[in-house]
Structure formats: C-alpha cells, structure tokens
C-alpha cells in the first residue's frame, strides 16, 4: 500500500491535500515540521514517498527531511493501528507500576512496543507522561484516557474497542 500511495487516483486527493498544506506553509519561517505534522495527519504516517515529495517541493535535501522525521518520536514511518494504545511510563505512573500494565498489554495482544496487531486494529506504544499524573497509572487509547488502571483492567479496556 505504501509503495503506490502517491500513484493511484484514489491517492490523488491525498496528494492534493498535501500540496495545499505545503503551499500554506511555503513562506513560513521553518516550514518543515509543521508540514510533517499535517502530512502525518493526512496519511496517518510518513511513508517514504511523502517525505520525497515534501523534500522536492521545499527544496530541502531528502536526507534532511528523513533526518528530522526519524529524530522525533512523534513522527512515524510505519502505519499504525486503528487504535493506538499509549501506556504512560512517566515517573508518576512508573512508580505506581505502569510497567506491569504494559506487560499485560503485550501478552494480551501478543505484540511488542511499536508493533501493530495483524488485523491493524491495535498498535502498542509506551509514552512519556501524558500529563494525567493525577490519574496514575494512566493509559491513553487514541483520545480516551483511562486512569488508575491495574493490569486486570486491560482486557475490559480492550473490549471497548473490539466489535
């Protein structure tokens, strides 16, 4: 899917959107990171072809674009699942045992950090503090935040997303 994402007609619309974004930021000082943010919003991740296109349109060497994409953990070069599970490993959550929650997600879903389930429904991430320290330990699935989570809650939390 990634290889043809800039070619078929269906993807033409996405490309047009990307070009709109590039035009919007063209004259902004330091346009690359805002463009990458919006491009990731359009494609869900930043496939090689998208990086190449941005590089050509901005006249920034591809190596630099790639360098920026891989520097920041917020940018992904691999597609993600429909639901992204972020287990908070910030200090407040860590001292309250969030690693055990992460372990339980790993065993329950059978995937490791950074991976996506085969059906593309869930991907698992560990993140640094989502600022919900009052609810520690916390887990965020897309925009939903679950607080005071214990490993035993993992299955029932996942059930909310499994139809």
């Amino acid at each position: 899917m990634a290889n043809c994402c800039l070619e078929n007609s269906e993807s033409k619309a996405l490309l047009d959107k990307l070009d709109e974004v590039i035009d919007k930021y063209k004259d902004t000082a330091g346009p690359l990171i805002p463009i990458l943010h919006e491009a990731q919003g359009i494609y869900g991740y930043l496939p090689f072809e998208v990086q190449l296109h941005i590089s050509e349109r901005l006249g920034i060497p591809l190596a630099d674009v790639y360098g920026v994409v891989t520097f920041y953990t917020g940018f992904n070069t691999k597609p993600k699942g429909k639901y992204v599970i972020n287990v908070c490993l910030g200090t407040a959550c860590y001292v309250k045992g969030s690693e055990n929650i992460l372990d339980r997600f790993k065993t329950t879903l059978g995937i490791d950090i950074g991976d996506c389930t085969e059906d593309q429904i869930f991907s698992l991430e560990a993140c640094r503090c989502i600022g919900s320290c009052g609810l520690a330990p916390a887990v965020m699935i897309n925009d939903d935040v679950y607080g005071n989570v214990s490993p035993d809650d993992v299955e029932s939390i996942l059930a909310n997303y499994q139809l």
């Binding site: 000082a29 330091g30 990171i33 805002p34 990458l36 920026v68």
Partner: peptide, 21 residues
C-alpha cells in the same frame, strides 16, 4: 509551534533549532 516528541527540545538552543525546522 508544535514539538514532535523530543525531550531535548526543552533545552533552549535545541528548541530554537527545532522551530527552525
């Protein structure tokens, strides 16, 4: 301007380098 998940960008010179793209 949005960060993109890099702790080092809280350091002042790194933050400015990041705003520059």
């Amino acid at each position: 301007r949005l960060g993109a998940g890099a702790f080092v960008c809280g350091e002042e010179t790194a933050l400015m380098t990041s705003i520059e793209g």
